[in-house]
Amino acid sequence: MKVLTVERKILKKNDDIAAENRQRFKQANLTVLNLLSSPGAGKTTLLERTLEKLANRYRVAVVEGDVQTDNDARRIAKHHVPVVQVVTRGGCHLEANLVQEAVANFELDALDLLFIENVGNLVCPANYDLGENLKVVIISTTEGDDKPLKYPPMFRVAHVCVINKIDLLPYVDFDIQKARDYARGINPDLRFFELSARTGEGLEDWIRWLESLIPKSTA
């Protein structure tokens, strides 16, 4: 009997492919955002509102991750942007190789901004780097304001937190300040946006911030 010291990262394969993706995105001068939330927090709706504002001025594409259906991809396609649907067949998160295959459908050098809508899940996707520049976690006022406390790893790795469905604040028991404090306690560098993807309230800040991510030469 022999004991071997191994010390190998379990997700190394994913990390390696993510690094390839990141390199490729960088070459293409492309900003990539990974959108993460529980099911129904409003990722697709926010994307639709965002495309309405940006798709006529910038070259935007979308990768849609979903467990089963291509409903979201069809919602996005109505906005006349390139979209690829990735069906994970029960898988609870996107992995870097799926994104690599998906983006092979795009001409990356001809894009400014790429959104990846991850599978609705606040646990698993936190561990899987896709090669994105920024992770955006979306919570909505119809969920508990203690969401950050329940999913600390996700809030730890996220760069940006969108609090969606603020149009419903009068009807729900959601304390925005509490949610922000909890999230900041986990990750002091988080940047917040409060908005309603339904009414458009608060959307300007979000759009302005997205524009600031797009390299000047293409604007």
Binding site: K2, V3, V6, E7, R8, I10, N127
Partner: peptide, 11 residues
Amino acid sequence: ELQVSELEVEE
């Protein structure tokens, strides 16, 4: 961490 650190094998 998320690592395989050690294996015990039969030679």
